[in-house]
Design a protein around this nucleic acid. Structure first.
Lengths: 210, 210
DNA sequence: CAAAATTCTGTCATCGACTGACAAAAAACA
DNA sequence: TGTTTTTTGTCAGTCGATGACAGAATTTTG
């Protein structure tokens, strides 16, 4: 089933990884906006044109990890028991996402570095918020399906997702502020606190929330 | 005190207004991304270079009204009584912002049109979210000052602002969806509902919210 | 009113992200 | 080895955005 990944495939993986590494290094050193695609490509000795065959653009290489985490959250939510309260399921999905982040080698460091880049570049902030919004829309659709309602008509689906992920994101921003040590435990604690403040008093009972 | 605005000033105002009108028209007709700055400039018979002397860029001409509303909200919050509960003050500020929108000639129509553009263009969505984030940061600073806390250390300031404006924005998105009639009353009602769902159970007492 | 100072505008050149087209190089396959 | 498929580099071009400079319009001043 899993055929040995040929030379071509291995090479592609290596190039892609080298590009992300070089890009994040350059972004951290000179800033996101001041780094030209040309430089990233040169650092890995490929042509600028080829860079755009590996990534959709500068944003994509900077925010790749966040996109992967969005997928994690969506997958996690989709595999939650259907009888679980939506808020519970969402918090569990977010926790699962963090679990996978912490499990990844150097995951937290890259995550923290990415958020420091975002904090320093309005361009990147815009891009990350757009991606977050897209992911949140997909999560809302899953919630709607779980609850058997129409996502277009029932604002609770979207609202709940946004409350959870907006507050969690604030926790992340605070924990990843430059200067702070950002270990796994502290990150999780800060996110948890923000989540609790925002959602603790929300009714657990979906049908009572109107 | 208020000197008569000379010919130069009147001309500038007219050009600026003509540019926003032409731009919104073109954006609605062909889509934001498909509209080139060159076309907007041509519609008003100025050079593309001059366009950039009136606006910071394409985003700026599309989202000008939203930026003005952000300023309204900030001004409104700043003039709220200091002994008012933060959540109450924020909701009042948001209401005042809507009041000014509704008072403006054709305000609601332009507002609705802008949000339909945003819904159709990821580029514009990114830009609008970045602007919103910037405004929310400023609002959080005002809340911190009112409450006599450090905005950097006390996450409640940022969290409260985000909860209010995130839920309000969801209400706006829903009310401005294409096809719906978007009159003032319905817009306000939808925003109110989202706001209530998100914040009704939050403690009114700031010091109890920990 | 005319001259001088200020401000606005258009032209030109340039940057940087991104994309389509095409041919050369590399890897996979027969 | 020769053929097919995929990847890569080069080239040209689009579009948004910006600095520099000169000419035009407006305001201010004498």
């Amino acid at each position: 089933m899993t055929t040995e990944p040929g030379l071509r495939e291995r090479k592609k993986r290596r190039t892609r990884a080298a590009l992300t590494d070089a890009a994040l290094e350059l972004f951290s050193a000179k800033g996101y906006d001041a780094t030209r695609v040309e430089e990233i490509a040169a650092a890995v000795e490929i042509s600028p044109r080829t860079f755009f065959r590996y990534f959709d653009g500068k944003e994509d290489v900077a925010l790749g990890q966040l996109s992967a985490m969005d997928e994690d959250a969506i997958t996690a939510l989709a595999t939650r028991p259907a009888d679980e309260a939506p808020l519970t399921a969402l918090r569990a999905a977010h926790n699962a996402m963090l679990d996978r982040l912490f499990a990844e080698e150097g995951g937290t460091e890259r995550f923290s570095a990415t958020h420091q880049l975002i904090a320093r570049s309005p361009t990147l902030l815009a891009a990350s918020l757009r991606r977050a919004a897209a992911a949140e829309d997909r999560l809302a659709l899953i919630i709607a399906e779980r609850q058997g309602v129409d996502a277009g008509a029932d604002m609770r689906c979207h609202l709940l997702v946004r409350l959870v992920f907006t507050s969690a994101r604030l926790g992340v921003e605070i924990a990843c502020r430059r200067g702070d040590t950002c270990d796994d435990a502290q990150l999780r604690a800060t996110v948890d606190k923000a989540l609790r403040l925002a959602t603790a008093t929300l009714p657990t009972d979906w049908s009572a929330w109107l």
